[in-house]
Each structure stands twice: as C-alpha cells, then as structure tokens.
Design a binder for these strands. Structure first.
Lengths: 191, 191
DNA sequence: ACCTGAACACCGTTCAAGT
DNA sequence: ACCTGAACACCGTTCAAGT
C-alpha cells in the first residue's frame, strides 16, 4: 500500500496518516507492525530493490557486471516516483542492504580481487547510481509540474517520451565500469 | 545561525521555529528573507561548500584533481553535523551548484576532453563523494548516540579518534580517479 | 493479537496588521 | 523595509483502553 501511495502522491505525502487511511485503519495501528516510520520506509525500499536479485552475473566481466547492475538499479529506482530519494535515505541510515554488493563481490572474488577492495568498488558504483538517479528523478517530477525553467529539462524535444532513456547515465556508467576494471587489475597484479 | 544550529542539534531539529527563536524573532519573519525552508537550506549548503573554491587545480592531472577535489569535498561535508544529508538534498533539488564541476572541467578542458564527457565525470565523482560521506556521517552520529551494534562502528578501537580518517574512502577515490583518467584518455584518443 | 481514540508536542506556511 | 500574532492544516508517536 505504501508503495502504491508513494508512486501516486510522492514521498512528501507518504505520511503514516495517509497510509493508515488508505488501509482503513488508524495511524496508531501501524505502530503495532513497525517500530517507526523509517523502518516502514525501509521495508518499502526493500520492495523497490527486489528486482536486483534477478540479475545473473556469473559469466560477466567486472566491467559488464558493473554496467548491468548499475543499469538495473537505475531501472528499479525509476520504476516508482521519488524512489531514489527514499532508497537513498534508507541506505544512508543502514536500514537496507546494498543493492549491488553481493553480486558484484561474487564477480570480483571469482577474479581474485581482495574483499576490502571489492566492497569499496561496490559502494562507489552504488553511490553514483543512487545519487545520479535521485538528481535525475527530481528533475523529472519538477518537469512534470512545470516548476523549472526549460533549460534544465531532461527531454527538451519530447518531454513525455520513454522515461528511462539513458543518455549521460550510460556513458558515465561505462566510464566507471571500465575504470574499475582497470584499477582492479592494477591492484590485484601490481599490489 | 542556521549553520550553527545544524552543527549543534542536527538536521531534524533545524526547524524554521528554532532558527527564528535563536535569532530572537518570530518564525514568520524568516519568510521575508527566504521564500521557503528549502531555499534557506540551500543557502546553508552553499556556505558549507564555500571552501571548495580554494582548491587550485591548474597544474594537476585529471586523476590528481579528482583526488584533491573529492577529498576536499568530503572535508567540507564532515565539518558540520549532518552536512552531507543537507547538501545531498540541496543538490538533488538543483538549488545549489555542483561543488566540483567547474574546477574539474577546467582541467579536462585543458586536456582536450569534450565538455559533455567532463560534465558526466564530474557528476560521477560528486555523487560518489556525497553519497559515501552521507552514509559515513550517518554512522558517525549513530555511533555517538550508541544506536548501532558494535559491528557497524567505524572506529572499533577508538571511537573518538580523528573524525576524518580516510580509509576506504581514499582507496575508492583513487580507484575512481585512476579509472576516470584512463577512460578519459581512451575517449579522447580512441574516439 | 491487533486496533481505536485521544492526546502530546510539534511542524511549514500564510497573512492581516503593525512600526 | 521588516516584523508580529494568530491562525491553518497538518505531522510522528505514545498509550490506555477496547475486542
């Protein structure tokens, strides 16, 4: 229900009272199921990130895995209104697991990269994708409300085109992916 | 004043009413100076990021510039409580300028990298640093309140050691910096 | 086990009115 | 030009009490 309300009305209107009303219940009833609002939001974040588990990375190179996981993460976040902001805060609060770490680490570990390095690489990619998409999504919803000058629009030609066009994102992700591949090889071979 | 209150009481308690009270004024008085709270917070963010202008990047390589700008950005964010979260949201809302773009672009432009690529690289670095520091700072303040299990602590040995130890951060930043250097060269020479 | 009802201690913002 | 006072329409959370 919270996920539905998030997508329909946005994060600022995702209040305990609205969720409760939509469930035809008092707001206080929610506190039997969740200790507080942040925990409830973390559960919503986990739902948003669920499709991450479908990515199969076994046969991929590090660079490929970074691109696939990064692109899928962005898709998950763009699938619901304000999802990037919500997930960003759940991640920062440590109430939700890293959405790409286990899969990326499976690949790097297979290639003999030390775990500490892999963890750091996974964090770098995650922070970039979430931050980028947060910013992107903010512009998208601001656009749809006509709140920004045209110059900052994302799709100047056709504002209602496919929403998940990757333009700069794909380029940046590829840069990072290739960069990590190179760095990881340096660290593992060179020491 | 808002910056002082932020550092002392944290972002959740940085309310219009508290700011006004500290200024010995009514909350409504603030609305003569700022159209809303987000704009006021953006002004605070700009103050937090002011030291970014002191970084001199003219003679640096791309990799050096990324490391210097990234490290300085993290220092700015760690200088005040909850600053990373505050700046993250101001950036996402587009109410504050990118803290590293102009300087990093000066370097890449000098090296003949196309602007579109440079912009994307600057965004990648910015999102990584802000996201990483946001997460880090959250753990720091959670630590100081004893709210997390010990396993997630940052400084297991000495919780009140130097607060700005870069451990993983420096490693990750170097990886990204080297990676970008390589990628940027590929793009410019290879096409 | 699960929920209600009412309260507590707050919010951001607006706006007529003052000086 | 700058601020007050009062109000509007909300918040998250707690807790005794109900079934």
């Amino acid at each position: 229900m919270a996920l539905r309300l998030l997508d329909e009305y946005g994060l600022p209107d995702l209040t305990m009272r609205h969720i409760a009303t939509a469930l035809e219940v008092q707001a206080s009833a929610l506190y039997w199921h969740f200790p507080n609002k942040q925990t409830l939001l973390a559960a919503v974040s986990a739902r948003i990130l669920a499709p991450m588990d479908d990515v199969r990375v076994e046969e991929m190179t590090v660079s490929e895995a970074v691109r696939q996981l990064g692109a899928r993460l962005r898709e998950c976040l763009l699938a619901y209104r304000d999802a990037a902001e919500l997930v960003s805060s759940s991640l920062a609060l440590g109430l939700v697991d890293s959405p790409i770490r286990p899969q990326l680490m499976a690949v790097t570990r297979r290639d003999g990269v030390p775990d500490s390095l892999s963890r750091v690489a996974a964090e770098a990619v995650m922070h970039f994708v979430v931050g980028y998409t947060f910013h992107e999504q903010q512009r998208l919803t601001a656009d749809s409300f006509g709140l920004l000058p045209e110059a900052t629009s994302l799709n100047p030609e056709d504002a209602s085109a496919q929403p998940a066009e990757d333009g700069d994102f794909g380029e940046a992700l590829t840069m990072i992916a290739d960069g990590l591949e190179v760095s990881v090889r340096q660290y593992t071979s060179g020491g």
